Simulated scan of single mutants.
Amino acid sequence: MPEAVAHQLVSQGVLPLCGMPEAVEAIEVAARVGKQTICNVLIPPKITASTVLSEVRAKQALTQHGLRLPKSQRADGTEMLAESARELGFPVVLKGEGVAHKTEAGAVVTGITDEQQLFAAAKAMPVDSFLVEQMITGTTVELLIGVVLDPAHGYVLTLAAGGTLTEILADSTSMILPVQSEDVRNALRKLRVAPLLDGYRGAPPANMGAIVDAVLALQSYVIAEMPFEIEINPLMCGPDGAIAADALITTGECHD
C-alpha cells in the first residue's frame, strides 16, 4: 500500500499512531487474515500474561457471555465421584483438575458408563481433584476457537479443526477482531472440515447459528476482559447446538 494512503488512514484515526512502518504492516496483516475493514480492528492497550484460570473458573467466566457448557460437578477427592456422576447421569467424562493439556497428560477419560470405570479412571490420573462432566453426544464435528494477542495488530481469532487431531490436521483460518456473524460463517467455509458442518454422507448438519453464537460469545468476553490468550478446544458442534467441552484462559495485565 502506498505511504500516502497509509498517511491518510492514520490522519483519519483509522490506525493507531504507532509509526508508519507499523501502520503499513498492520494493514498488510489485516488483508492476509481476512477481508475486514481496518477501521474495525480492535487495538487493546499493552497487555502481558497474568494468571492461567482453572477450567472451572474459565468456563464460569465464559458462560456469563453466553457460551454453552456441559453440565458438570467438581469432586475434591474420589469420595465425591460416584455422587457427582449419579447426579449428572452416565455416561460421563472425567477430567483431572489443574492440567492444561489433559489428553497428553492422561487427565481426561470419556465415555465412562459406570462407577467401576469412574474410579479406575480417577486412580490412573496424577491429580487429587476432578471434574465430572456430562458426556456430549451427537457431535458432527469438533472445532477449536482461539484468540491470541498480537502486540502489533491486536487480537487475532483462529477457527480450526479441533479435538485431539488439531495439530495433525493443521486446518485453520484467522481473522482480526472484532468480527461479525457473516465473517465467522465465511471463515468456517474455508476449513477443510467444512463439509462435515453441512452433514457429510448423510450425517445431520451442525447448527451453524449456534457455532457463530459461540464465536461471538468468546469475542464478547475478549472485548470485556482483555485477556492475554484464550482457547476453546473442543467446541462440540452438532444439530442441537455448540458446546464448549474445554476452555483455557490466560488473563491479561494492562500497562500504560
Rank of each mutant, 00 (worst) to 15 (best):
I223K: 08
C237V: 02
I27D: 02
G199N: 10
E167M: 10
E83T: 04
A152H: 09
E142N: 06
K102R: 09
M1N: 10
P21I: 00
G77E: 07
L9I: 12
G209S: 10
M20W: 06
E167G: 02
K95D: 09
I243K: 02
G146A: 10
A160K: 03
C237M: 03
L157R: 11
L118I: 00
P239M: 14
A85Q: 14
A245G: 10
V156C: 12
L157Y: 05
Q219E: 15
T139L: 04
Q219R: 03
P16S: 10
A100R: 15
Q180P: 13
V179Q: 09
V99E: 07
L94N: 13
F90E: 08
G66R: 09
A242M: 02
E87V: 06
E182P: 07
I230M: 05
V222M: 04
V99H: 06
A224M: 06
V33W: 10
G106K: 04
L69Y: 07
D183G: 15
Q116I: 11
G98R: 10
T37N: 12
Y221W: 10
A161F: 01
E115V: 15
M125E: 00
V148W: 13
R32L: 05
P45H: 02
G34V: 00
L144Q: 02
S54Y: 00
I145R: 01
K190A: 13
E225I: 03
L235D: 00
K59P: 02
A210L: 05
P204G: 06
K102S: 14
A187D: 09
C254I: 02
L159P: 01
S129K: 01
I230S: 00
L248E: 01
L15S: 03
V56A: 10
A244W: 01
Y155K: 06
A224D: 07
A210N: 03
T158M: 04
A82E: 05
M80E: 04
